[in-house]
Write a protein that binds this DNA or RNA. Sequence first.
DNA 1: TCTGAAGACTTCAACAGTAAAGTTCGAAGC
DNA 2: GCTTCGAACTTTACTGTTGAAGTCTTCAGA
Lengths: 184, 184
Amino acid sequence: MADTPGPGASEPSLDEQIAAYQREFQDLDPQVEKVVSALSRLNRRMHVAYGRQTAELGISNAEWEVLKALVLAGDPYRLGPGDLAKRLGLTPAAMTHRIDRMVAEGLVTRERDENNRVRVIVGITEEGRSKWLEAMRMATVFEEELLQDLSGEERGRLGEMLTRLLRRVEDAQPDAGGRLSDLD
Amino acid sequence: MADTPGPGASEPSLDEQIAAYQREFQDLDPQVEKVVSALSRLNRRMHVAYGRQTAELGISNAEWEVLKALVLAGDPYRLGPGDLAKRLGLTPAAMTHRIDRMVAEGLVTRERDENNRVRVIVGITEEGRSKWLEAMRMATVFEEELLQDLSGEERGRLGEMLTRLLRRVEDAQPDAGGRLSDLD
DNA sequence: TCTGAAGACTTCAACAGTAAAGTTCGAAGC
DNA sequence: GCTTCGAACTTTACTGTTGAAGTCTTCAGA
């Protein structure tokens, strides 16, 4: 009776969760579940951490994603909304709205392509670039702290295993297209 | 010139992305970035895959999350909206709406606690339980496929490393509360 | 018993995302 | 040189989430 935290209980620990799965669904491989659950929890926490950091810069996580894509695109630092949407995994409509807001905030510019007036080109402003840089600085501090318990060799092995998993999903889901387990 | 895929380019590969980071932001440790980027890409892909599977059952990913929380809670399979919200990382308001929809669809029940009439209790229905089970079956197939390239020993090492990272973030963010890099 | 404070949930208004229809321009065929 | 098709983006209507304000109940103190 001392072990039920009452009706105000919070998220169970990872091990508690695995134990619960074994109780309710015997077919589950606990080793697999541990990897999968840890992955998704980690991601949630990282998302929260990034959100706090970008908030200090007065931008949202979503806006940072756009800035990252533009900088990573390289030299002219310009991309069309459709391309941006693909890179961020959004619908074109969402991209339109996002760009609207970011133009209003002075983070990016939007102009029509002179050679093809149906096309639009989004570019990064000085302010956008400097917010991006600040966010990167904060992010790298966070990421270094996150991995501080892993040796260099462990980091390498971890990265290698994760990319192996990633390759597996990407093959099966060519561009958010296919499906991993063919269920239809 | 043959290497720019034109204005219709899609998401760059992980390695291309890392190379771009090194070009634009030298302070970045490529090993760290590889881990972090792979984590977030993996999560996006997994989310897409789960979404497809639950869609086949006529429920959303969000609804599956609620069903999972209820089943994992154990025996009476009942939780309050506030507790559910904490476990899923949502605001109470979002939880209210989500439960509305799920009650309408017959996946869960909502009743007032007899002993404390300000409290509400959400329980899972037969149908909810069976959708949960179907979703779990599909998910385990997917997860097993995802990890198929890793040996048993590798899976263990991966799970162990990920939980070490998770512990690090959770310590720093006690309940989505604290912050990892103290930036204020 | 009454009153005030705190807790648990809901309501409301605003915002972000999606799907589908709409608009506009460019290019290919007649 | 029209016309039609298709591509790229935007608009519209709807769904789901958030933050803040509101309601209702319990509990502690006067």
